[in-house]
């Protein structure tokens, strides 16, 4: 028998470098080009119209028959837009936007939680369908439905009087409350669905591990379920808040003069007054307000959660 000693091969050759990225894939297209359809979509349906609105907002209404002109540029339309009526309507819109989003969140949270984590698996399809059912009807028709229900002579009013809960006919149609009811009803599914998906993705073993380690239901909810569902909660709030702020159908049908929203002001400038320049300025202001509100809300949530985050944080660092 020959004794043979095998010399180990050098484990790493210093001259070797990672293969160049170009040769790795079979794509000869630069990767960003793959996003071309998305870029095109964004450009055509977002950047271009917003740019146009922005452009119009610096112009003026040239005469009784013209809608816009841009030969003289100024910020005058903004000064014009920031009228007392605008501020009043703005306050109203913000109130409805924030209250509506919060109410949607408060209602959707337990519903989505139950649907995703407690309801029998076999019923899920049915539950999601039920959430979506109102969407089968036209937005306007649904909203007019509430007009019928909330009318002083409507069945809700009669029912409440019949039950003796109130003596007078219901007086909430054409108020902010009616608008609030309308928007919560209209936007609730947009909150429930992302929350449902978010909760659904918090796997059962994770919640079980939490309880196993001594966390009760509440601690598991706040320390595992909600942190993991956070992206979905944020998406839900944005999905409700942003279109709600610009909504003018609900406010027109249910709000009347007392439940005015900025969306209505913008629409009336474009449609009734035919002043596209002023309407555009208002639309730009609305967008800025939405961005600002979202930023402020994010800041508030961030600041409020800092103490908790600091308390939870545990950094060990390198060996000492």
């Amino acid at each position: 028998m020959t004794s043979q000693i095998t010399t180990p091969r050098p484990r790493q050759d210093a001259s070797r470098t990672p293969p160049s990225r170009k040769r790795q894939g079979k794509w000869w297209l630069p990767k960003p080009l793959l996003a071309l359809p998305a870029w095109a979509w964004l450009l055509i349906f977002f950047v271009a119209p917003v740019g146009q609105v922005l452009w119009f907002s610096f112009g003026y209404k040239p005469g009784i028959f013209g809608t816009h002109a841009n030969d003289v540029l100024s910020f005058d339309r903004y000064a014009e837009a920031l009228s007392p009526t605008f501020f009043l309507t703005f306050q109203n819109t913000l109130w409805v936007g924030i209250a509506g989003t919060l109410i949607c969140l408060i209602i959707a949270f337990p519903v989505a939680y139950w649907m995703a984590l407690k309801a029998p698996l076999s019923r899920r399809g049915l539950l999601i369908a039920l959430v979506m059912v109102p969407y089968w009807a036209n937005f306007l028709v649904r909203t007019i439905g509430w007009q019928v229900i909330l009318a002083p002579e409507g069945w809700l009013s009669h029912l409440l009087q019949g039950l003796g809960l109130t003596n007078e006919p219901l007086e909430i149609l054409y108020t902010r409350t009616a608008v609030l009811i309308g928007v919560v009803y209209n936007y609730l599914p947009l909150m429930i669905l992302p929350l449902f998906v978010a909760f659904d993705r918090v796997e059962l073993p994770l919640r079980e591990a939490s309880k196993d380690l001594g966390a009760n239901r509440w601690s598991t909810l706040t320390q595992v379920t909600i942190p993991l569902a956070k992206p979905g909660i944020i998406v839900g709030c944005l999905l409700v808040f942003i279109p709600l702020m610009g909504d003018y159908i609900t406010a027109t049908v249910l709000g009347g003069a007392r439940g005015n929203m900025i969306g209505q002001l913008v629409a009336s400038q474009f449609q009734t007054a035919q002043n596209w320049a002023l309407g555009s300025a208002m639309a730009v202001l609305l967008m800025l307000i939405i961005l600002l509100t979202v930023a402020v809300a994010a800041l508030i949530v961030w600041v409020a959660s800092r103490p908790f985050a600091w308390r939870r944080r545990l950094v060990i660092g390198e060996d000492s």
């Binding site: 796997e203 939490s210 196993d212 001594g214 993991l228």
Partner: peptide, 29 residues
Amino acid sequence: PPYRRDVNTVFQAFALFPHLSVAENVGYG
């Protein structure tokens, strides 16, 4: 309930909390 029992479990799929660091996972209990 599980959180009142003097037992702990090593789960088959580990079930580590993805939003916490290794140290925070270990310190959770």
